[in-house]
Design a protein around this nucleic acid. Structure first.
Lengths: 340, 340
DNA sequence: TTGTACGCGTTATCAC
DNA sequence: GTGATAACGCGTACAA
């Protein structure tokens, strides 16, 4: 049905070796022969089979991407960044969404193994979990025997390149800002403390509080799980208790939304009834002109960097493992202050 | 380096045909032989090469997806839906993001052609454009000679299956709601009128206005382009002119955001200073408890449906072309009313 | 029930 | 400069 290199060879009255040479710009081909072949290819709309090609060359130009949720602003941007670089290098991208599900993660890994992808960018479902699940994951990654870049979340004692975020520092900095604004009762709605990114952000908060000799009041530490719903629920609780903190740190974009939702519901005003600063950006909040302050990284850039790490690793498989920590940027819009 | 079926055959002391038979569960294999081979496969962590397999079988289980912007709530959800079904059927998904760029679209198509994908889900950069670009696109799609499902945007005189949205009806319905609320001066911020989805929504507005004998006032028709910025700019303009419409229809999620941004900036309140209803959902507006009313389709479901169409087409390549129009749902939150 | 031999569409290594 | 020919890793008639 679809044309092969043989068909082209016949039509051009040459051998397939010669066609292959013009396709790959390799070896000597007389100018006229080349032009003739090129014409036949154009006229007959021939595209060489990547499948046959990679079987023959024993290498693919395909990379795999496994992320937990494509319908998440952050990962959507990450994907955009990865895709951009993949495209620039004429590679192809196989996409997998795990929905934060271990079984799907396993299946994706097996599939990518069979597809013989050249490299993998992975955000694991878990993050630095010591259990059996992580052991299995690490083994499976080793079995792949290809360059891998971990993104956003990692594994304990990683042997792979990684692109992460300054979780500790960003939270530290956010806390510091609140402290310097003069707030005393500084609370936090943490992320999922089973994930390292959740832990680190929490630790950043504790670190800053300690360094500045602030009193850490357990009542103001609300353990969330990075979801809108939990943050909303926790926020309602502390709003209803009369003991409101002066300021709050929200540990990711969704936490921020849950918090703000609660504020609106109780008619509390940011920067008036309570101050706040978040981690992660929410495009929409900015568009709507909310005065919500936050520290965040550039997600698209994070995708680009991950793909670049992979490309470098292809170049030099033996170079030292590199972990790239994306810097945070501070976006102050006013909510960190309290104007009575 | 990586194991082949031959390695497994040797280790299991059988021929590779037998290994192939257990891999594919085809033909007769003695129970003991099968178990032995399965053990060898497990122990040596062998995964068959999808590349070699599809070359040999002359068919792939890979589908291509081309969307214009992954970092867009709508397409992120679409991708999630597609990925879900792809996964259920043990297929693999090759992802391309065109960034609404014709050249990238062309390159993606060529790449997917070489990859010999089994099917394609495509949201073209353009939508029912009569020009040369569309002719070229249609030709390239024909050249692919594979099942194709157009998603959200189509081409003139399409020969392919498609999954679209009730653009006309949804806009008609939105307009109708405003009319029945008693609004007289009903305006609209249109989408990109070069795209058919933009046109159809605009026509839905006109249709309802006409059917209900409403006077269409050109001053209240603001031509946007589906972007936040343009909608914001237009909104500012009509707010500053003293001649504000009673109610506004915003033609997609971004238009809505631009509009609301302007409202906030001028301290106008939705449902008090001006009524409004939009097309498309904005998760965040809902989360924040905005009272913004809208009509929308389920984007994740749209992805699922598109993938299902493709699967059906694989089953029966000759069945009649089917265009699936996703229904809209109405979400009234109050902004359609005007409470003085 | 199992093994042999060939083909899938390329690239690569040789001769010519 | 060009053309046979052998891989690449697998599936599959066909033979045994």
């Amino acid at each position: 049905m679809t044309l092969t290199i043989n068909d082209i060879a016949k039509k051009a009255k040459v051998s397939k070796s010669t066609v292959s040479r013009v396709l790959n710009n390799s070896g000597y081909v007389r100018k006229e022969t080349r032009e003739k072949i090129e014409n036949v290819i154009k006229e007959n709309i021939y595209y060489p089979s990547a499948t046959a090609r990679s079987l023959s060359k024993k290498e693919s130009s395909t990379i795999g991407v496994i992320i937990p949720e494509a319908d998440n602003e952050f990962f959507g941007e990450v994907l955009t960044g990865i895709s951009e670089i993949v495209d620039e290098h004429n590679m192809t991208l196989i996409f997998c969404d795990t929905s934060n599900n271990f079984l799907k993660e396993e299946r994706a890994l097996a599939m990518l193994n069979m597809q013989r992808v050249k490299g993998l960018i992975l955000t694991p479902v878990n993050d630095h979990n010591y259990g059996e699940a992580e052991k299995k994951l690490k083994q499976k990654l080793k079995d792949l025997k290809i360059p891998i870049v971990l993104l956003d979340r990692g594994v304990k004692n990683s042997e792979w390149d990684g692109v992460y975020f300054e979780n500790y520092k960003s939270a530290y900095s956010a806390t510091e800002i609140l402290i310097k604004e003069g707030h005393k009762k500084i609370g936090i709605i943490t992320g999922d403390l089973k994930l390292k990114i959740g832990q680190d952000r929490y630790k950043g908060y504790l670190g800053a509080m300690e360094d500045y000799g602030m009193e850490i009041i357990n009542e103001y530490i609300y353990e969330g799980n990075f979801s809108v719903e939990k943050a909303y629920e926790l926020s309602k609780q502390f709003i209803e208790s009369k003991d409101l903190p002066d300021a709050i740190i929200t540990c990711n974009n969704r936490t921020t939304l849950g918090f703000i939702k609660a504020l609106k519901e109780y008619n509390l005003t940011l920067g008036k009834d309570i101050a706040a600063i978040g981690i992660d950006s929410n495009k929409v909040l900015d568009i709507l002109g909310y005065n919500f302050s936050y520290v965040a990284r550039d997600a698209v850039e994070m995708g680009r960097v991950a793909m670049h790490r992979l490309l470098e690793r292809f170049e030099d498989p033996n170079k030292q493992r590199v972990e790239c920590i994306m810097p945070y940027k501070i976006y102050l819009k006013g909510s960190e202050k309290m104007n009575p």
